[in-house]
Amino acid sequence: MAVYVLCMVLFCVGIYAVVSKRNLIRIIIGIMISENAVNLFFIATAYRIGGRSPIFSPLTDVQNMVDPLPHALVLTAIVIGLATTALMVALAMRLHEKYGTFDIAQIRELRG
């Protein structure tokens, strides 16, 4: 249960960065922290006491395996997270080129 609370704390750290920071790069880092907290939570739900990785081997017969479904979901989520982060960074680069700042408050004032 402590693992879930840790994931929640990490998620809240990311959300705090998104809500309170004004620098676009820090907001992007906050989104990444939240994303990784969710991935960590998924992996934590897959765990079973004393479980092994869900891969059969020709030599040993593994009995107690962890749940493979969250692993499969997180596997693709990580790669997609990388691509969406790159897209966010690209948009931030374009905004910086146009307004000369990463501060969202200043960008709002300079609108038009």
Binding site: Y4, T45, A46, Y47, R48, I49
Partner: peptide, 12 residues
């Protein structure tokens, strides 16, 4: 924590 959370995982 540490128990079966999905039924489908055991089937897989």
């Amino acid at each position: 924590f540490g128990e079966d959370t999905t039924n489908v995982g055991g089937y897989y």
